[in-house]
């Protein structure tokens, strides 16, 4: 399989999985009428205070195991964010395979920038 094709599959599968997770989350939320201890009315308001900053990864795993709708939605959103990052990793591998060292380095720089955005910047902002 050529590099372009594998990248195309990574992108497509990521989007499909994420949409399925978000839909499951929405269905669970409406069936149960609440999630993570919040009643649905509190979530469904324009300036709801409930947002991504309140959810840690470990809480999310627990929430998924107890069928909390919000955690499924958030996992779907995380999968969506990870999809292009997976594509960057796939590109590093294929440039290594092609022995195109300049682009191995360039793609690694892009990857480091993304990792800085995920792990370093939030810490600097005090989150």
């Amino acid at each position: 399989m050529e590099m372009n094709d594998s990248i195309a599959y990574v992108l497509k599968i990521g989007v499909v999985i994420s949409i399925i997770l978000i839909m499951i989350g929405a269905v669970l939320l409406f069936l149960q009428g609440s999630s993570n201890g919040f009643p649905i009315g509190e979530l469904a308001s324009t300036s709801s205070k409930i947002n991504s900053s309140m959810f840690s990864f470990s809480d999310m795993i627990n929430g998924l195991l107890s069928y909390q709708g919000l955690d499924f939605m958030l996992l779907g959103i995380i999968v969506l964010i990870i999809t292009p990052i997976a594509r960057v990793i796939a590109s590093v591998l294929s440039f290594i395979y092609e022995r195109n060292w300049l682009y191995v380095v360039i793609t690694l720089i892009v990857f480091i920038n993304i990792m800085v955005a995920i792990f370093v910047v939030p810490g600097l902002l005090g989150h």
Binding site: L43, S48, I81, T83, V121
Partner: peptide, 16 residues
């Protein structure tokens, strides 16, 4: 994806 990672930490992502 890069922007959203920071938006996530800042709490700008409201799942509903």
């Amino acid at each position: 994806a890069t922007s959203s990672a920071i938006y996530w930490a800042l709490g700008y992502i409201q799942p509903f």
